[in-house]
Computed example of a mutant assay.
Amino acid sequence: MWERRAAEWTAWARTAGHDVHFTHLNWPAFEELVPAPGRLTLDLGCGEGRVGRLLQPVGHRLVGLDTAPTLAALARDGGGYERVLDAAATAIPLDDGTVDLVVAFMSLHDMDDPARAIAECGRVLEAGGRLCLAIVHPLNRPAEALEDYFAHQRVAVPVERDGLTMTFEAIDRPLGYYTGALEDAGFVVEALREPRPDAAAAQPLFLHMRCRREW
């Protein structure tokens, strides 16, 4: 899906001031959970590379990973990463204990098998390493989908604003799916946040977690 949407997504993400949810809510709240730079940071599902371009200037050494060749090439050319891997999150081409931080910013909910990806994060992280993840909040889904919250449901949401269009495709899953996968992979949740768009908002848009690999 992301390879098909690569041109749309790049315009959406790189047009200055366009992705207001990212700029004013999602990233500022998420950044507060990210640990200080360490040995090596893996950006899991790096897309066109904006997370790397934000973390590298504050001291992170980064490896990016994405399955969409067009987006991986854009991340590689855009700077911020020491290297970008064309690979799946379920088979990360890094040795055990290679990194001390994995950032999975708005990527796990797009994957067919997030549990396996989380297990791979546990494998490449050193003991005590952190996984920081952001997903679409499990309650942030169409009303009809909430009729069966526990079902895994594919969604496609087209959005148009200021002349740009983007169809966001993902798989809605209950929160327990993610916490179960984290538990199975040896993680404990250190912090969980539901950034509120504004005081009038009735439900959160995103869910953030910082998790520590215990074994």
Rank of each mutant, 00 (worst) to 15 (best):
A29H: 13
A29Q: 09
F30C: 12
E31V: 06
L33S: 09
L33R: 09
L33V: 02
V34E: 01
V34I: 15
A36W: 03
A36R: 15
A36L: 12
G38M: 10
G38L: 05
R39Q: 09
L40A: 04
L42R: 01
L42T: 02
L42W: 00
D43G: 06
L44A: 14
G45C: 03
G45T: 00
G45A: 04
C46T: 04
E48N: 08
E48P: 14
R50T: 02
V51W: 01
G52A: 04
G52P: 02
R53D: 00
L54E: 04
L55E: 01
Q56R: 11
V58P: 10
R61K: 11
L62Y: 01
L62V: 02
G64I: 10
L65M: 10
D66K: 10
A68S: 15
P69E: 06
P69Q: 03
T70M: 06
A72R: 13
L74T: 05
A75P: 03
R76T: 14
R76C: 08
G79E: 01
G80D: 11
R83W: 10
R83I: 01
V84Q: 06
A87E: 02
A88P: 00
A88E: 00
A88C: 00
T90F: 02
T90K: 03
T90C: 00
A91R: 04
A91E: 03
P93E: 00
L94S: 08
L94Q: 06
D96M: 05
D96Y: 08
G97F: 07
G97Y: 10
T98S: 15
T98Q: 15
V99L: 08
V99F: 10
D100R: 15
V102R: 14
V102I: 13
A104R: 07
A104F: 07
F105W: 15
F105I: 06
M106G: 01
S107P: 06
H109Y: 14
M111S: 00
D112P: 14
D112L: 14
D113N: 15
P114G: 14
P114R: 07
A115K: 12
A119Y: 05
E120K: 13
C121T: 06
C121P: 12
C121A: 15
C121Y: 01
G122V: 03
G122P: 05
G122F: 10
R123L: 12
R123S: 10
V124G: 12
E126T: 11
A127V: 10
G129S: 06
L131C: 08
L131G: 10
C132H: 03
A134R: 10
I135A: 05
H137C: 15
P138V: 02
L139Q: 09
N140C: 08
R141I: 09
P142C: 05
A143F: 07
A145S: 14
L146D: 11
L146P: 13
E147W: 05
E147T: 15
D148L: 09
Y149C: 13
A151C: 13
H152T: 09
Q153S: 14
R154E: 12
V155P: 00
A156Y: 10
V157M: 09
P158G: 13
P158A: 07
